[in-house]
Amino acid sequence: MTFSQRANVGLRKVPSWLVYLVGGAIPFWYLYLAATGGMGVEPINALERELGELAILTLVIVLAVTPFRRLTGISLVMHRRALGLLSFFYVLCHLLVWLVLDVQDLGRVWADILKRPYITIGMAAFILLLPVAATSNNWSIRKLGPVRWRRLHQLTYVISVLGVAHYVMVQKVWEAKPLAYLVIILVLLATRIELPRRLSPAEKG
C-alpha cells in the first residue's frame, strides 16, 4: 500500500462525530480561556478575532480538500461536510460575540451593517453561508439533485472571498497574516478554473 492509500484508510477510520465533537469544542474552549484571563486583558476583542480566524482557517481547509487530493492522492472528502459545518459554526460564534459582547446594541449593530463596508461584506458572507449550511445533508442532495446542489455549494467560493476581504479590511494597515490568507484562498480558487483543454495532434486530425 502506498503512503496515500494508508493515509486514506486511516482518515476513513476517523468517525465524523469525533470531528464534530473536537471542532465544536474549540469555541467553548476559547470562551473558557477568555473568561479566565487566558486571552489577555481585553478578552472580547481577542475572542472575536480568534473565532473569526478559526472560521477562515477552516474554510481554507475545506477549499484545500480537492486540490490536496489531486496533488497527493490523500482524500479528506469524507470529512469535508463536517469541516464546512464547523466553519459555519465558528462564523456564527464570531457573529454572536460581536453582537452580544462587543457592540451590545441591536440598533448599532444594524447601523454598522449598513454603514461599514467590512461589516456589510462579512454579513453578506454569513447570509450566503446560511443556505449552504442548511443543505449540508444527504436529504438536501437528494431533494435538490446533485447538479443543483453542487452549484449551490459553489457559493463557498464567493463566501471565502468575502470572508477574507472582511478579514483584510478590518485591519488598520495591510497586515501580513490576512493578506497571506487572501493569497492562499485565491490560489485554491484558481485551481478550480478549468483551462481549455489543448487538442492532441490526433484530435486535430
Binding site: A35, E42, I44
Partner: peptide, 12 residues
C-alpha cells in the same frame, strides 16, 4: 468605548 480590564461582559 470599552474600558480595558472589564472582562468578558464589560459594558461599553
Amino acid at each position: 468605548e470599552r474600558r480595558v480590564g472589564g472582562g468578558l461582559f464589560s459594558k461599553r
